[in-house]
C-alpha cells in the first residue's frame, strides 16, 4: 500500500464487497489539475452553473410578461454590481461549456483523442474562453455607451 497508485485500485462492488480493480480518476491518486481531468470537471461545473443561470432567464422572461414594475426590478438586479458579476461569470461559463462541448463533439466523432492533441485543444479551450468572454463584454460595453 506504499505505492500511491494502489489507492486507484480499491473498488467496491454494488453489494459492498471490496475488490482490487482499476478505478476511473481518483481524487487521492490522480493530479486533478491535469489538463484532461481539469477540463473534464470544468465542463460539468460550467454546465451546472448555467443550469443556475436559467433561473435568471426565467426571472427576466416572467417579469417581462408580468409588467413594468417586475421588469424594472430585474433590470435593477442585472445592472447591480452582483448582477454584472453573475452575468460575467455566466458568460465565461457559457463560452467554456461551448468550446469544451465542441471538443466533446469532435471526440464523439472520433477525432483528437490522442494525448498531445487533447492537451493542445484543452489549452485552446482555456485561451478561447478568456478571449471570447472579454470580447463579449467589450461588445456589451460599446453598445451600452
Amino acid at each position: 500500500m506504499s505505492d500511491p497508485r494502489e489507492a486507484g485500485m480499491i473498488g467496491r462492488r454494488t453489494d459492498g464487497k471490496i475488490v482490487r480493480r482499476p478505478l476511473s480518476p481518483h481524487l487521492q491518486a490522480y493530479d486533478m489539475m491535469q489538463m484532461t481531468s481539469f477540463t473534464s470537471i470544468m465542463h460539468r461545473i460550467t454546465g451546472t452553473a448555467w443550469a443556475g443561470g436559467t433561473l435568471l432567464l426565467t426571472w427576466w422572461l416572467m417579469a417581462a410578461a408580468t409588467g413594468e414594475g417586475a421588469f424594472a426590478r430585474v433590470q435593477w438586479f442585472m445592472s447591480s454590481f452582483l448582477g454584472i458579476l453573475i452575468l460575467f461569470g455566466l458568460t465565461a461559463a457559457a463560452w467554456f461549456h461551448t468550446l469544451a462541448g465542441l471538443r466533446h463533439l469532435a471526440w464523439d466523432a472520433g477525432y483528437g483523442l490522442d494525448i498531445p492533441t487533447v492537451y493542445k485543444t484543452g489549452r485552446a479551450v482555456l485561451i478561447g474562453t478568456g478571449v471570447l468572454t472579454v470580447l463579449t463584454w467589450l461588445l456589451a460595453i460599446v453598445f451600452w455607451g
Binding site: A64, E68, F71, A72, T91, A94, T98, G101, L102, H104, L105, D108, T136, L139, A140, F143, W144
Partner: peptide, 26 residues
C-alpha cells in the same frame, strides 16, 4: 449531442441579442 448542436447557433444568437437589448426600455 443533438440538442448541443442546435444550441450552438441559438445561444450565440441569444447572447448577441441580449447585448443589443442592454439599456433598452421595457
Amino acid at each position: 449531442r443533438v440538442t448541443s448542436i442546435a444550441l450552438l447557433p441559438l445561444t450565440i444568437w441569444f447572447v448577441l441579442s441580449m447585448i443589443g437589448l442592454a439599456g433598452t426600455t421595457y
